[in-house]
Simulated assay, not measured.
Amino acid sequence: MPALQRRQLVGHDILLARHGNHISTMRVDRAGGRVVAYLDDGSVDSAPNLISPALRMPDTVRSVLREDWKFLGTVTAASFGLAGVLFAAAAAAAGWGSAPGMAELLSAYPGS
């Protein structure tokens, strides 16, 4: 998997190239997929965030979770299931031991 990167907004670069130091503020219109710039003279300009709609943007944590939630859920459930089986096996092995110290040995966890 490639390294997760913050998505760069192409609209910022387009607006900076168009207007340079004449931009007073910028905001991102996420619903419209645009960056809006308020200029010194009171006018407003905007630019799209994507060069091409078919362009694949870099992965983010949110996009990975959105695409792979079934796989990650399955791995989590399998991990909890395996931990439960191992805990049950340790408890059963503690009951099988004839020596009284066997249960203590299997259930003891060294503290720090």
Rank of each mutant, 00 (worst) to 15 (best):
Ala54Arg: 13
Asp41Val: 01
His22Val: 09
Ala93Ser: 02
Leu86Phe: 07
Arg34Val: 04
Gly95Lys: 05
Val44Trp: 05
Val44Asp: 06
Ser52Met: 07
Leu86Tyr: 06
Leu105Ala: 14
Leu86Lys: 10
Asp13Asn: 07
Asp68Val: 11
Pro48Glu: 01
Ala99Pro: 02
Ala54Ile: 07
Leu82Val: 10
Gln8Met: 06
Ile14Glu: 00
Tyr38Leu: 12
Ala3Lys: 14
Arg30Ile: 07
Thr60Ala: 05
Ser112Asp: 12
Ala92Met: 06
Gly42Cys: 01
Ile14Asp: 03
Gly97Asp: 00
Ser46Leu: 07
Ile23Arg: 03
Ala78Thr: 12
Gly11Arg: 00
Arg34Tyr: 03
Ala37Thr: 03
Ala78Phe: 13
Val28Asp: 08
Pro53Met: 04
Glu67Met: 11
Ile23Gly: 02
Ala47Met: 05
Thr25Asp: 13
Glu67Tyr: 08
Val64Ser: 02
Leu105Lys: 10
Ala88Lys: 09
Met57Asn: 08
Trp96Gln: 12
Ser43Ile: 04
Asp59Asn: 12
Gln5Tyr: 12
Trp69Cys: 11
Met1Ser: 15
Ser52Gly: 02
Leu15Met: 01
Ser46Trp: 03
Leu65Lys: 13
Val64Phe: 07
Ser107Ala: 08
Gln8His: 09
Leu82Ile: 10
Arg62Pro: 01
Gly73Trp: 08
Met1Leu: 10
Ser24Asp: 15
Pro58Trp: 04
Arg56Asn: 11
Ala78Lys: 15
Ala54Gly: 04
Asn21Arg: 13
Val10Ser: 03
Val36Met: 04
Val61Pro: 04
Ala31Cys: 09
Gln5Glu: 13
Tyr38Ile: 08
Phe71Lys: 15
Ala78Trp: 15
Pro48Lys: 03
Asp59Trp: 11
Met26Cys: 09
Ala89Trp: 08
Arg62Cys: 05
Arg18Thr: 06
